[in-house]
C-alpha cells in the first residue's frame, strides 16, 4: 500500500466527514420535519454495520472455527448489553483460546 494512496484516502475520509458535520451548522436553520427521511436515517447505522459484519466476520481470523465461536460469544455478550470493549475483547479471547486448542 503506497503512503500516497493512504494519505489521499485519509484526506477524503476526513473531508467527507467534516462536510457532513459542518454543512447543517452553517447552511440550514430549519429542522427536518419529514418523518420518512428521519426514519431512513434512523436505520442506517444498523443496516450498514450488519452488512459489513456478515459474512466477513467468519474470514476475519486464521481459524474459521475460532471465528464462529468468537461471533457467538460476541452476540451473547452484546445481547446482555456489555460495552464495546468487553464484546470486542471477549470475541478475540475466544478466537485465541480456540486456536490454542488446535482447531
Amino acid at each position: 500500500m503506497s503512503p500516497f494512496y493512504i494519505l489521499g484516502g485519509i484526506a477524503i475520509m476526513a473531508l467527507m466527514t467534516y462536510i457532513i458535520r459542518v454543512s447543517p451548522m452553517v447552511i440550514f436553520q430549519k429542522k427536518i420535519e419529514n418523518n420518512r427521511i428521519k426514519s431512513f436515517l434512523y436505520y442506517i447505522p444498523y443496516t450498514v454495520l450488519a452488512a459489513m459484519t456478515f459474512p466477513a466476520i467468519f474470514s476475519s481470523t486464521a481459524s474459521q472455527a475460532g471465528a464462529v465461536a468468537g461471533c457467538v460469544v460476541a452476540v451473547l455478550l452484546a445481547y446482555f448489553k456489555r460495552g464495546l470493549l468487553v464484546v470486542a475483547l471477549g470475541a478475540a479471547a475466544t478466537v485465541f483460546f480456540v486456536s490454542m486448542l488446535g482447531f
Binding site: Y43, P45, Y46, T47, L49, A50, M52, T53, A56, I57, S60, T61, A62, G66, A67, G70, C71, A74, V75, L77, A78, Y79, K81, R82, G83, L84, V86, V87, A88, L89, G90, A91, A92, A93, V95, F96, S99
Partner: peptide, 30 residues
C-alpha cells in the same frame, strides 16, 4: 494479534445487538 482480527466485528455486533433486542423493526432491518 490474529485473534484481534475479529475485534472490529465484535464492536459492530455490540452496536447492533442491544437495539435489535429491544426493537423488532431494528431486528428485521438487521
Amino acid at each position: 494479534t490474529d485473534a484481534m482480527g475479529i475485534a472490529l466485528y465484535g464492536m459492530f455486533i455490540a452496536i447492533i445487538v442491544p437495539p435489535a433486542r429491544e426493537n423488532r423493526s431494528v431486528l428485521i432491518a438487521v
